[in-house]
């Protein structure tokens, strides 16, 4: 299985994998209520460049927009109606601003909720399409609509070490003939106060938004060698499931690989949660294409539940 191309939208920029050559600019948020002091935002871009109809932007949350922007970097083969689409998706993208009208009318002065007022008046202040901003699967649906992808699919919630599952699933779909080609990736946009409130405690690295989407097919310049199971195990045991010997380069999602010279993904793009697996793959593609000494790249994902390793190599 091969990765033919990658599109990226992250704190380093919007484009193909080469934007990852630029160090991300982590700015200081004006959010005094949070412990977090650095975040990674995608540099400003014109969203209308990436959608077929301007009105669809009204229905897109930030993660959906980033996923579409990343996917739009790809030149797709014909046959989209049969192609697969597998994305890692994060927590609900709801912004507190979407709820402000409801809270203004449904909250007692002491901060308790007035349910009767919420039903009577508060709900009328919500946007009727709020549901489409908060449903977790929306990044996948918008990519499907904008790019005309109609085949097998999965919106996989894998915010930690299992963020590479969308690539394994896409590779399986193409290898088994379930789809002629597939897009795999991930998108997350956690820089809203509702998500920050759940994630910023003890986070010593910059939280960041981002997305990456790759084209998987039976030909390409980069070979996807596979993904090990994610379980409690040593890095070498996980690596041995997909690659003989040590890779030329390591990329680490989660704790850095001490003594192996790994590139910590969060230093390049920030902590991007459900997008981290996809951005790690994009960085691997960049290394394989730009660094002659990098013939193979291992991506090690670690969290409290286990360790897994994915491997890629430069084809023939």
């Amino acid at each position: 299985m091969f990765i033919a191309a990658v599109g990226v939208a992250c704190a380093s920029g919007v484009g193909d994998e080469r934007v990852l050559a630029q160090p991300a600019d982590f700015d200081f948020p004006s959010l005094p209520q949070f412990a977090l002091r650095r975040v990674g935002r995608v540099p400003p871009f014109d969203p209308e460049r990436f959608v077929t109809q301007r009105k669809s932007l009204k229905r897109m949350n930030r993660a959906s927009l980033l996923a579409v922007a990343a996917a739009r970097q790809l030149a797709l083969p014909d046959g989209g109606s049969e192609a697969g689409l597998f994305l890692g998706v994060g927590m609900s993208g709801g912004e507190i601003a979407l709820l402000a009208g409801l809270l203004d009318t449904s909250r007692h002065p002491d901060g308790t909720l007035d349910l009767a007022a919420m039903g009577r008046e508060g709900l009328a202040h919500l946007h009727p399409l709020l549901s489409f901003h908060v449903l977790n699967n929306m990044p996948l649906c918008h990519v499907s609509i904008e790019l005309g992808i109609g085949g097998p699919h999965a919106a996989i919630h894998a915010p930690g070490g299992e963020a590479l599952q969308a690539f394994a699933r896409g590779a399986e779909a193409v290898a088994s003939g379930e789809a002629p080609w597939a897009l795999s990736g991930g998108a997350d946009a956690p820089l809203n106060t509702l998500t920050l409130a759940l994630t910023d405690e003890d986070l010593d690295r910059p939280l960041a938004e981002g997305a990456a989407v790759a084209l998987l097919s039976d030909r390409g310049a980069i070979e996807w060698l596979g993904l090990s199971e994610h379980r409690p195990q040593s890095i070498d045991a996980a690596r041995a499931e997909v690659l003989e010997g040590e890779p030329s380069r390591w990329i680490a999602i989660g704790p850095a690989l001490a003594g192996r010279g790994a590139i910590p993904l969060h230093q390049r793009v920030g902590e991007t949660l459900a997008a981290s697996g996809a951005l790690a793959v994009a960085l691997a593609v960049h290394l394989l294409r730009s660094d002659p000494a990098a013939a193979t790249v291992g991506i090690c994902a670690q969290d409290a539940l286990g360790t897994s390793v994915a491997a890629l190599r430069r084809a023939g």
Partner: peptide
């Protein structure tokens, strides 16, 4: 979908900034 715990959101909400306090 995750369920928003509205009692918590209401308790943390600041009407002056229309954001979490």
């Amino acid at each position: 979908l995750e369920v928003l715990l509205l009692p918590d959101v209401a308790a943390l909400y600041d009407p002056a900034t229309r954001d979490l306090a």
